[in-house]
Amino acid sequence: MRRYVLKRVVQTILTAWFTVTVVFVLLRLAPGDPAVSYAPPNPSSEQLEAIRREFGLDQPLLSQYWTFLTHLLHGDVGQSFQFRQSALTVVLERLPYTITLAVAAIVITAVLAIPLGVWMARRANTAGELGANIATIAGQSMPDFWIGFVLLIVFAVNLQWFPSSGFTSISSLVLPTLTIVVLQVALISRLVRREMSVNLNASYVTIARSRGVSERRLTWRYAFSNSAIPVVTALGTRFAAMLNGVVIVEVVFRWPGVGQLVVDALERRDLPVIQATVLVTVLLALFVQLAVDLIYPLLDPRVRLGEGAR
């Protein structure tokens, strides 16, 4: 167990370091000069030079990177160019909005997709299942910006049931969540259906049926419990991805989360904010992944930590 924890910690640090480094280098290799974004119109070369010096962009790449790393070790990710304050603070202010959206979306996805997938597996090859099949394939194929715009036009603009943008009250959460959920429910319910079909046809279920175990128990205690690992893995992966910012949905609904922040920061070439966002969201995603791994042995006695699932 101690070995496992140590291994995971080292893995996490290396992954975070690698991701941040790639982003750091790519941002500086990308064309365009951040100084231009923060200079007055028609700046002189002296003015641009002064801004570059202020941001530390006048240094060679390697020495910029060295400064970045040594500051990072002290928990300093740098100052935001546009907000003139700690980039980390800027990101952490936006993070709760993204987390709220991600949690709402994943909970509703699980609540809808699991029963739907189980129902489809139980009703395999019936008309009802065919209908659900078509609906989920449609949900899977619709682009999320399109779903977002349709919901926005129908429920915010025309019906005015929900606010169209920003975060004003809990009802602001409804449309962005719904937009995410359509796609996720389609994906997860089909996964649940697939796993459940395999397990419902497994011989241990047939033999339990011969012992008189009820269909309800066979469905949940037998087949579903045995499908839990892939389902939890998929939900965890989706949740981690959402924490990285649900960019399109946040932009469509002007949701004040990190997805929106990162789009603005890219536009304004606010390099420290982009780096801070990447660092924070990567660490969060790794944390979720760890939590999922720790759940595996609880779901399946055959899994031992450090050996992977099954």
Partner: peptide
């Protein structure tokens, strides 16, 4: 059959390795 299974009739399967719920 619902009342008979697991009461007056029992099944012994071919492959015991796959006959029980692996997580109970």
């Amino acid at each position: 059959i619902g009342g008979i299974r697991g009461r007056s009739v029992a099944l012994i399967p071919q492959d015991p390795m796959t006959a029980l719920n692996p997580i109970a």
